[in-house]
Design a protein around this nucleic acid. Structure first.
Lengths: 142, 142
DNA sequence: ATATGTGCAAATAATTTGCATGTCA
DNA sequence: TGACATGCAAATTATTTGCACATAT
């Protein structure tokens, strides 16, 4: 089975993008941390350890590229900075967010797909995705 | 029954805030547009028509105040600027968002409360609220 | 009278962009 | 080689803040 690194390289090639050292380091960093939810700043810091000379603009540009290639996903949990994570196309998953410490828990999709069809019919929309979030306080903060 | 304007005035008084002309104009503007989803900029423009001298900072400060008093609600639908609306405490409602033109449709809560209890037990969280959003393309954009 | 609120302009902070230079295919 | 990428610094944009002045209670 094709792994994520290969997949990324293939997608780059297919879309006429070049495989640069920076893009490789960035991808490696993202893949290296299982279940990582990170900001652009987080990624920048992590990547800097491997490549001293990388610039913030490259981080942003690569994040945007990866979104387009469906390698990663963006969330706007808090209004200050965006949070990214590896894209998972198989199973939707949603989030439980602590309003105090920002802790994130993922849980898998609980079949609210039936709602999609209802909404599509009722409002004449073509629904492509949904996001479900629960906000509250975690064990330590409640 | 107490209307929203009275409610606002009462909450201000209860919390030792003053009822200024600016706050009144801002509230009036928000109440004047049924089902309005607005940005700070939208509100600023609308309020300027009634009070030429109001400053943007006052808009932001009043919006924050109104959030604290649960007069309005904030959303982070897109990552560029926040969207506000009148607070509704009785019935949760959720959104259907067109990814192309930004059109918003509201729909009422479809009892996903049972999920809340499950999550609370499973992850030891105290859940206080949730947001459910469907993204897609509206009639005109699909 | 005085604590609060306002307007303005300047400060922040995240993200984007222009441009000269470097590098992959 | 030449189109695409990068790094840097400057630009942008939404929002916040400091401060002198104004106003509701």
């Amino acid at each position: 089975m094709e792994n994520l690194k290969e997949k990324f390289k293939r997608k780059l090639a297919e879309n006429n993008y070049k495989l640069t050292k920076q893009r490789e380091v960035i991808l490696g960093t993202i893949l290296g941390n299982k279940n990582w939810h990170f900001t652009a700043e987080d990624l920048f810091a992590a990547v800097k350890k491997k490549d001293q000379d990388i610039g913030m603009a490259t981080i942003y540009r690569t994040l945007e590229l990866m979104q387009n290639l469906k390698i990663i996903n963006v969330h706007d949990f808090n209004e200050d900075s965006r949070i990214y994570e590896l894209y998972s196309e198989e199973s939707h998953h949603h989030h439980l967010i602590c309003k105090k410490c920002g802790k994130l828990v993922e849980f898998s999709d609980q079949d609210i797909d039936y709602l999609e069809s209802e909404l599509e019919a009722k409002y004449d929309f073509k629904v492509t995705e949904h996001k479900l979030r629960f906000y509250g306080y975690c064990r330590d903060c409640k």
